[in-house]
Nucleic acid binder design. Structure first.
Length: 269
DNA sequence: CTATAGACCTGACGGC
DNA sequence: TGCCGTCAGGTCTATA
């Protein structure tokens, strides 16, 4: 759900509402979402601080606070940030800013987390390359895949290798590159690696241009669903027809994750 | 090292 | 109508 394009969209659309604003108060309705430090220390570290800038790394969102400290958020599967929503159903935390703005962390499934850190280095260090970083070249992708016996899909989902790809965009990129998700990562041909590299960037860019996906729960800060959903070919498309060969899209399970493929277009060998 | 399973949660949906 | 099981999927942790 919130994968790289969604978190980037949240960052972009939230910015005008929060940059330069001060946090006057915080309501926490689901204590467990605050990971560290303690709930009291979290409040103390956030209240009275001005939000200097926002940034994103992988699927993480950072609020850089004036005077030090970074508020780190991860939406996990159903989290979203809403500005002055019409209702507070599923609001697990609310940040009250000056000028009356309220930012709600809405999260039906309560998987989302946030914490206060000195800086972003700890998150940074555990994540792999950003897909939009020039360092993510076809050669870099080849290096990541090389020698791995694991199926290519879980390698794409490994945040310590490439940061920001989630289940949907992995399926979509593999379909676009016509590669079967179960193909061992190390067995991809140079041509497949080139195609996969291009497909990853294409799929993420396309989603970004449409304000992120709209898969059931994902909502943008101003309450509008994204429209990238319409562009998905295989994701959640079981029973639909492949736009290429007309065959039925199938659902298989790869490492415990629902995975959508066109069995005619995506090859194992 | 890898691989797998379970945990965390709750709403939507299909079957009966 | 309503009950029940399954599915959704990001990431951490535990275990083989």
């Amino acid at each position: 759900m919130p994968e790289l394009p969604e978190v980037e969209t949240i960052k972009n659309e939230l910015s005008p509402h929060v940059l330069g604003r001060s946090i006057k108060g915080v309501d926490i309705f689901w204590d467990k979402m605050v990971r560290r430090p303690s709930l009291a220390a979290f409040r103390a570290g956030v209240i009275g601080k001005k939000i200097a800038s926002l940034s994103r790394r992988g699927k993480y969102l950072f609020f850089h606070l004036d005077g030090g400290g970074v508020l780190v958020m991860h939406m996990k599967m159903t989290g979203s940030l809403l500005v002055d929503p019409a209702d507070d159903k599923y609001s697990r935390a609310v940040f009250h800013l000056d000028e009356g703005t309220a930012v709600h962390f809405r999260d039906p499934r309560k998987f989302g987390v946030m914490w206060l850190a000195d800086d972003e280095s700890a998150v940074n260090d555990m994540l792999g390359v950003e897909p939009f970083d020039p360092a993510f070249s076809p050669t870099a992708l080849a290096k990541i895949l090389k020698g791995r016996k694991a199926p290519v899909k879980p390698v794409l989902l490994d945040q310590s290798l490439i940061a920001g790809i989630g289940n949907m965009y992995a399926d979509e990129a593999l379909f676009e590159a016509r590669i079967h998700p179960l193909k061992p990562a190390g067995n991809l041909t140079p041509d497949e690696i080139k195609k996969l590299h291009r497909a990853i960037l294409h799929v993420l860019r396309k989603a970004l241009a449409r304000g992120g996906a709209s898969v059931r729960n994902y909502i943008r800060p101003e309450g509008e669903p994204g429209t990238a959903h319409d562009e998905f070919v295989v994701a959640h498309g079981v029973g639909k027809n492949c736009p290429d060969c007309g065959g039925k899209i199938e659902r298989i399970v790869v490492r415990g994750r629902g995975t959508y493929i066109c069995p005619k277009c995506q090859f194992l060998s």
